[in-house]
């Protein structure tokens, strides 16, 4: 089980996280943030494994990732 937090104000809507997510949970939303970009959003948070690959590939460090301690391996 995992969880991510997307900083919608910092996201520039590049969409790189959408291709990095192994579960294909991320997409760009239709709403527009204060920079004029459409930030990423997660569709089904319960399926997030906390692998943090979306956070790793994000050029703007706009995603923080969390993982359940019981299954964390590092």
């Amino acid at each position: 089980m995992g969880k991510i937090e997307i900083d919608e104000l910092r996201c520039k809507g590049c969409g790189l996280c959408t291709i990095a997510c192994p579960q294909k949970l991320l997409s760009l939303s239709e709403k527009i943030n204060n920079l004029g970009y459409t930030p990423a959003e997660i569709s089904d948070p319960s399926r997030c494994t906390g692998c943090a690959l979306c956070a790793e590939i994000c050029p703007d460090v706009a995603i923080l990732a969390f993982k359940n301690k019981t299954v964390a391996h590092k």
């Binding site: 969880k3 520039k12 906390g50 703007d60 923080l64 969390f66 993982k67 359940n68 964390a72």
Partner: peptide, 20 residues
Amino acid sequence: MQQVFKRPVSLKDVQTHFCP
């Protein structure tokens, strides 16, 4: 839940000017 990804300490918490 344990945080598995966080901003590095050496990187300032600011918006960059880089393009998307």
